[in-house]
Amino acid sequence: MNLKNNYEFFTHLLKINLKSLTSLRGAFLLQATFMIINNLVFFTMWWVFFKKFKSIKGWEITDLCALYGVVAFVFGVSVIFFGGVRSLAKMIDGGDLDVYLTQPKNTLFYASSSQSHASGWGDVVSGIILLWFSGYLTFGSLPLMLTVLFCSFVVFVCIGILFNSLAFWMGPMDSLARQFYDFVVTFSIYPQVIFSQFLKMILFTVIPGGFIGHLPVSLLREFSWSNLGFLVVGSAGFFILSVVVFNRGLKKYESGNRFIGVGTN
């Protein structure tokens, strides 16, 4: 299947997901609006913090604003476009991948983009607001901003695929995969200048929150080709690893005989 076909399929799926979300307009608006409030209220903790402490090892409130903005934006975009990633472990364990396996589309791509979450729109809006207030979102920085956001987004989606793919080998681990995902978010929203060397190493490998928040914002603060290269290579590495692990796992997948039920209800 060529790239053009995949793109057309993806845009159609996106339109259907969006129609489905907005069919319950009240619920959609409520979720998106409350998520914006949720994120902005959360950030007030840092506002209070920086009233007392002027900086954390050189990181000021504008840097934290950018960090939260990047993570919120990337989280939002990932659950809007690839909301199915968070349910992959459940699909694998419940045998629900049957529906996607019988289609002439890439299974991982189809299953990942089969769901979209309304709250993601709230994350995207609050992400843009925070990036705007950080002062890093300018016309001149737009190409770099888009590049780092894209790389961060790739890593975020891919680690979701990796954690959830463990269900191929470990069985029911939906709850655990979500917790791992939450660990990554938790580590992404704190400046990594506070961590020891050992923890920093973990944050670029096992719990790669460093690629999602810290490195993109470090590049916005002070551009360097080596850091950009590290981010690009890191995101490409996580992309390849997630696809390989999912495809390996797919060979161990046991059907849930779901295709029998399709269209019979």
């Binding site: 954390i56 709850s175 917790q179 580590f187 200048v193």
Partner: peptide, 26 residues
């Protein structure tokens, strides 16, 4: 439900570790 309990256990440790690093820094 042991898996969830282990995850909560770990999350508790991680949060304390993150904030101890923060307080050590400032």
């Amino acid at each position: 439900n042991k898996g969830e309990t282990i995850a909560r256990f770990a999350f508790y440790g991680i949060i304390l570790l993150v904030f101890s690093s923060l307080w050590n820094a400032v």
